[in-house]
Structure formats: C-alpha cells, structure tokens
C-alpha cells in the first residue's frame, strides 16, 4: 500500500485500543496465566503457590482424565457424520428445486436454536421410557437402548445433538464451495460425455477440497471443545462417561481445584493445537485425502 499518511500518528492505536485491551486481557493474558496456574497449587481458598509439574503428574495419574480424553476422541466420530450430512444438504439445496431458498433457511434453523434448547428437545426424544426412539424400537420388537445412562450411548445421544445443530452451518460452507465451481468446467465435462456421477467425482468434488478441509478442521476442533450438549443431556451420568471440557468444569467450578483445572486446560489446548496442525499438514499435503470421508 502506498497511501500517504494523513492521520495523526496515535490515531491507529486509538482505534485499536478497546479491542486490543479486551482480547489482550481476556485471551492473551489468560493464556499466559493458565500456564502459570497449571504449575501452582491453587484452590478457591489458597494459592497460587508454585508446585512445578505436580498438577500434571496427578492429572496423568488419574483414571478419569484418560477416560474423559478417550471419550473426547470418540466424540470426534461426529466429524465424518457432519461432513456427509452437510455436504448432502448442500447438494440438495443446490439442486435448484422450487423452494430451495426456503429449504436453506429451514435447515439453518437448528444452527440458530440455542444448544440448551436443542439438547432438551433431543433429551425428550432419547428419553429411555417414553422417548420416541425407544418407542419405535419397541414397535420393531427391539430392546430399548439406555441412551442417557449407558456408555457409549450417552455419547451417541450427545453427538446427535451436535450433528443436528451443526450440519446447517457447514452446509453453508459447502454451498459457498458449490457456488464457486465454474459453470464452464461442468459444461465442458458434460460435452466430453461425462455422466452426472463422473462430473461430480472429477469436477465438483476436487474443487470442494478447500471446503472439505475447512469443515474437517473446524468441526473436529469444536468436537474436542464440546460442553453444552453433554452438560444438558447426561449431566446425571458419571463424569467418566463425559468428555474433557465437562471434566475441566467439574474440577474447576465444583471441586474448586484451579491448579489442576488449569493443567487440564493446557492439556486440552495442546491436543487441539496438535490436532489442527496435523490436520492442516494432511489437507495441504494429500489433496482430497478426506474426500471420501
């Protein structure tokens, strides 16, 4: 940019100050603090007193940490389901049906629905005695499933809420991708005699690769951060059936062990960063590697 400087030298900083102040204190400052707290004995009543890596030692020695982390890993299975559902929805909306605009809005309604509301609605459907799902299973002569109390069904029911609430959002990402596919390419493929399936596989899908990569990374990171669905759906279940962030909430705000909770926060952050780094690597290196997901 070569514009001349018309403004007072302090002007840009004044424009930036409110936002930088808030983000600096509550995010950058908090990240430094969480690392410090994780190395201290710090409870609701005492501390913080430096204890080195003691919190990490205790954390890694505790069974519930590994169980919750394992559950978080299981929760990542929601990502492929989300990708299939949202790509499918995007293709249906993109098919130029008469009411496709209305359908697009309708499919976005779950995204707008507060997670607490969505979780309660599904909790009604998953209710073990009276919920629609078990009633249907009974009609089919099948035994009821303990959706809200038995591992891993508890995770399946929470993941259903995540899927329901999320697919409309990622559908928009795929729609943006589909709209960006050049018409000439599709026409050229059709002229060359390619059928619909061929055109989709050879022309549309490759140009969706950036969208697929984006949805893959964003949805799996938010799966690792899940809290609301778990909190509402299976609050009553033992913590060992829940995931990493609910465990952090339990340790920090019910047990009051801030040091330990900070160590867990750092551990979750490390997992998320490692996961997104590997993801970015894979999606940059092997193009279309997750296209079949």
């Amino acid at each position: 940019m070569s514009e001349r400087r018309f403004h007072h030298p302090a002007t840009p900083y004044l424009f930036l100050a409110p936002a930088a102040g808030l983000l600096g204190v509550f995010f950058l400052g908090a990240v430094v603090q969480v690392v410090y707290f994780s190395c201290t004995r710090y409870t609701a009543f005492t501390g913080p007193d430096w204890v080195g890596l003691d919190n990490y030692r205790r954390l890694f020695a505790s069974e519930r940490f590994w169980l919750c982390l394992g559950n978080s890993a299981l929760y990542l299975l929601v990502t492929p389901a989300l990708m299939i559902a949202s790509l499918g929805a995007a293709m249906v909306v993109d098919a130029k049906l008469p009411a496709s605009r209305a359908l697009r809005l309708l499919l976005f309604l779950p995204v707008v629905t507060p997670t607490v509301v969505a979780s309660l609605a599904w909790k009604g459907l998953f209710n073990e005695d009276t919920g629609l799902l078990n009633v249907w299973l009974a009609w089919g002569g099948l035994a009821p499933v303990r959706w809200l109390s038995e591992h891993p069904w508890t995770l399946v029911s929470a993941m259903t809420v995540t899927l329901w609430k999320g697919f409309g959002f990622y559908m928009m990402v795929f729609l943006a991708g589909l709209l960006a596919v050049p018409k000439e390419l599709k026409e050229a493929a059709a002229i060359d005699g390619a059928g619909r399936l061929r055109t989709f596989l050879a022309v549309v899908l490759p140009s969706l690769t950036p969208a697929l990569a984006l949805v893959f990374v964003v949805s799996s990171v938010s799966a690792l951060k899940v809290f609301d669905e778990i909190f509402v759906m299976i609050k009553g279940a033992p913590i060992t059936q829940q995931t990493a962030v609910p465990l952090l909430y339990r340790i920090a705000f019910e047990e009051g062990d801030y040091g330990m909770a900070s160590a867990l926060g750092v551990a979750i952050f490390a997992c998320i960063l490692a996961f997104s780094a590997v993801n970015l690597r894979l999606t940059r290196g092997g193009k279309g590697s997750e296209a079949d997901a």
């Binding site: 950058l28 908090a30 926060g265 979750i268």
Partner: peptide
C-alpha cells in the same frame, strides 16, 4: 503504522485460543 503486522498476527493467534481452556484465568480476572 508501527507494529501493524505484529498486532495483526497477535489477533490471528487469539482466534486459535478456545475459551474453554482458559476458563480459570478468565474467571479469576
């Protein structure tokens, strides 16, 4: 202005920080 790139980089970094992992310091603040 001076530090523009640094500030922009710091901003992009905060986008990577999930609120869930820094709940304790946020709460203490």
């Amino acid at each position: 202005f001076r530090g523009k790139n640094l500030i922009f980089l710091a901003l992009l970094c905060t986008m990577m920080i999930p609120e869930q992992v820094i709940l304790v310091p946020m709460f203490r603040i």
